[in-house]
Amino acid sequence: MRGFRPFLVKELREVARTWRIWVLPSIVLFFALSGPLLAKVMPEILRSMSSEQLGGAVIQLPEPTWRDAYAQWVKNLTQIVTFALLIMLGGTVASEVRSGTAVMVLTKPVSRTAFVLAKAAANALLVAVTTLIGAACTWGVTLAVFGEAPLRPLAEPTAVWLAFAALVVALMTLTSVLVPSPSGAAGLGVGIYAAMTILALWGWAVEHTPAGLLGAPGALLAGERPPLAWPLATTAAAAVVALAAATLVFSRREL
């Protein structure tokens, strides 16, 4: 993997010095910080609505807890942040090929495998660090707002989502190699995600495939023990296959 390290360093510097540092971290941190506050004030907002506005209905809501704050975090991770990843990572390889910067790099002693894997590694690192910082923020704000914030109910769903996010990074690396336009690659990624959500309606798929990880964070937060061994193993395998396919296809591609 000639050239992996210097190219990874360039990728990380690019994250720090371009729009990439603002998009994902901004989204994650916004929801991480606002989620617990929203969980706290939402029942009061609803209660403050007059019964006339609600057609005479009276709303009975339980007092919010740390669990509601964590539920906001998990919901945002599995929906909004996942979609942001799909859109953002569409240009992983495609944008460099399209702009011509890939040609400048790949005519130096840098293997195409190193080029693809360094990009995937930088994206995975960005997602992991951002998510961990976001989770820490959610934990801190939840503790401040609710006076109680157990670690395990937050850590388990976040870890499971991170495993799913690693698959998203690998799949988006592949789609970005397969489709020459960043928006086209993002569209293909959204299509694959939609197919997985449909697959998640099938019990066997939930127990044995990465589709099982879609609902697992919510289930873990609710105190359930969803099947995780097979979904995690197949997710890891699918990520490796996607990255291997991406490097193979890119190595044979004429630029």
Partner: peptide, 21 residues
């Protein structure tokens, strides 16, 4: 030639040097 627009000329040359180790 296409470059990384966020780099300066010197940074780009040093990046190229790193690719050649």
């Amino acid at each position: 030639p296409a470059f990384y627009d966020w780099m300066t000329g010197e940074e780009y040359l040093l990046f190229v040097a790193s690719l050649f180790a």
